[in-house]
């Protein structure tokens, strides 16, 4: 009975059906109001959103998450089985990368954080432990078409050094990232800052690296076949 269950859980057919199922639910979900950018899916950690959102918004994501959970189990068992039989390492590295990325999403879905702050020069953000990050200076340049071509905010942690925050160049402090989203210079300089915590990011990066190494190894192996 257990052997049968194990054989079924690590079968290729199950993996194929699960992948097809996830694709189908995501495809349906992409047309639903739940995935629309106004539905708040990007504003809350996923698990919190799933708990709060009405089921007619989130049903497709519940199904996708459930199917993905079984797919992760399938990939784990398949990988162990393949390693036990001494098969090529490349696909197993890809499986391991995929599993780490899934774990990363789970960590971010549970412990992620995002909040926006609109601050003038002199305004500050409070952090756990009583520390504050203060906006000291906000600058920007307007391009020939009237749009902001470059902008920057200089931030200082209480008693610390000055850090320049620009688009694509955030500041990291105590596990949080501080991102500069927008700047307005008139009538007074104001910066729109976003504070993020993405606990899954390291696992996602390691997973992506493992996946890439496995993928390149597979490509080399199959080059002449």
């Amino acid at each position: 009975m257990l052997k049968q269950l194990h054989a079924r859980l690590c079968s290729l057919n199950l993996g194929l059906w699960l992948m097809a199922g996830v694709m189908l639910t995501l495809a349906i979900g992409s047309f639903s109001r739940g995935s629309a950018e106004g539905a708040g899916l990007n504003d809350l950690p996923l698990l919190l959103w799933l708990r709060e959102a009405p089921l007619y918004y989130s049903w497709w994501l519940w199904i996708a998450v459930a199917l993905l959970a079984v797919l992760c189990l399938n990939a784990t068992l398949c990988g162990i089985e393949a390693l036990r039989k001494g098969r090529s390492l490349a696909p197993q590295l890809m499986h391991a990368g995929f599993l780490l990325i899934a774990l990363a999403h789970l960590l971010s879905a549970y412990g992620g954080f995002k909040q926006q702050f609109q601050l003038p020069e002199g305004g500050s953000i409070g952090f756990p432990g009583g520390e504050r990050v203060q906006v000291e200076r906000i600058t920007g340049e307007t391009g020939p078409m009237g749009m902001m071509s470059a902008y920057r905010a200089d931030l200082r942690v209480t008693g610390g050094e000055l850090n320049g925050v620009r688009p694509n160049a955030p500041m990291f402090h105590k596990g949080y990232g501080i991102y500069l989203k927008e700047v307005a210079l008139d009538p007074v300089p104001v910066a729109l800052l976003e504070v993020h915590r993405e606990p899954g990011a390291p696992a996602a990066l390691i997973g992506a690296l493992l996946f890439t190494i496995g993928n390149l190894m597979l490509l080399m192996q199959r080059r002449g076949r």
């Binding site: 990007n42 971010s108 990232g177 991102y179 976003e194 993020h196 993405e198 990011a201």
Partner: peptide, 9 residues
């Protein structure tokens, strides 16, 4: 991650 604070939207 560097632009929006998240690797996934």
């Amino acid at each position: 991650y560097y632009a929006w604070g998240t690797y996934w939207l």
